[in-house]
Amino acid sequence: MRVQVVTVNHGTSAYADLLLRSLIAHHRLSPDLSILLLDNDSGDVERLDWAKGFGVEIRPSGYSLEAAVTTHGEILRDAVLAEPDCDAYLFVDSDVCFTTGDTIGTMAAELAADPTLFAVEAGWAHEDGKLFQHSALTGTSRIRESVRFEGADWCDPYEFDIGYGDRVHPFCALVRNDAPFRTTVTELGLSPALTYCVRGALFFDTLGLLTQIMKTHGRTWRRSSKSVIHFGNASWQSTPEDGKAARRDALLHTYRQFSDQH
């Protein structure tokens, strides 16, 4: 399966450094695995130049850190339209660390084995390996979203009720590149969406609307047998740091030794 990896660096170059080093350490690089990092004018992306020697493509996203709304889904849409020649896209957040061999290959095999799946999502693990159950397949949960108006600071995060809690999460999701997916991306995109109806306001976070549309094609998603470390909320200015940087840097030291030797 030809896999196009897509990640977005939104002022998170130190995390992106770990992502790329850990991905390269745990996967056999080949023409079937392409890696694209799109940078939101982070200002220090040159620290990732080492990755170009491993075939990683780094280019501007066309957006900046000063965008007034979340741009993640729109950047993913642009990447899908610009890079059509693959069997699946691995959307992965910049604050992910791969920890086991051939995680992407396992996810690809799981996706290929079940034609009813449109996506496979990695398990979300903490550094101790304990899995975090970040969302339920059914029911209502709550998410955070924030906006920044022109000339103003980011507002405090606020909450929406999710009308449909089932969605594949873009922190590490392998999505099949087929006609229903491409039509959805072309016509509607992958950004958050909000609908109004007699049942109230229904909010769909990034890839949330895609998940619901795939149901109309009899398609679903599953969690992979493989997991990755996901620090979470690395680009949120108002999120407490809670020692994440130190834990990130300890892992980065380990993986830097590997990539520097190769």
Rank of each mutant, 00 (worst) to 15 (best):
G55N: 09
V56D: 04
T100A: 15
M107V: 04
G73T: 03
F132W: 11
W124E: 06
C97H: 03
D87R: 15
E66I: 02
S64Q: 09
G129W: 14
E110A: 08
G62E: 01
G105K: 14
P115D: 14
C86R: 11
G73M: 02
G123V: 09
S42A: 13
A67L: 04
A113H: 09
V96R: 05
D102Y: 13
R59C: 04
R77H: 03
F54G: 09
I35A: 02
T70V: 06
V69W: 05
N40M: 09
G53P: 10
I75A: 01
V45I: 15
I58G: 09
H126E: 15
T99R: 15
C86K: 11
E66V: 06
G123F: 02
V45H: 10
A112H: 13
D128G: 10
R47T: 12
E46T: 13
D49K: 15
A109V: 03
K130N: 09
L76D: 01
L33W: 05
L81R: 05
C86F: 08
D128I: 08
Y63Q: 00
A51W: 05
V96T: 09
S94V: 02
T100Y: 07
D32E: 14
R47A: 12
G55I: 13
P31T: 06
L131F: 14
L131P: 02
A68M: 07
F54E: 07
A67E: 15
A122M: 06
A82F: 00
D41V: 09
E57F: 07
L90Q: 09
F98I: 01
F118Q: 08
S34Q: 15
L65E: 07
M107I: 04
V45E: 11
D85N: 12
T70K: 09
L117A: 08
P115M: 02
E83I: 04
I35E: 02
H126M: 15
L81V: 03
A88H: 08
A88C: 14
D114H: 13
A113S: 15
E74V: 01
A108G: 09
T71R: 02
T70H: 13
E110Y: 13
C86H: 11
V69G: 00
A119K: 14
A108L: 06
I75N: 00
V92I: 15
D95T: 05
L33P: 04
V56R: 10
A82P: 01
L90R: 11
V80I: 12
I104Q: 02
G53R: 15
S61L: 04
T99F: 05
L37P: 03
I75L: 03
T99P: 00
E110W: 05
L37W: 03
I58P: 11
V45Y: 09
L48C: 10
E57Y: 02
D114G: 11
V69H: 05
E66G: 11
D85P: 02
A68W: 01
V56E: 07
A68N: 13
G62N: 03
A119Q: 08
A68E: 12
F54Q: 10
G101F: 12
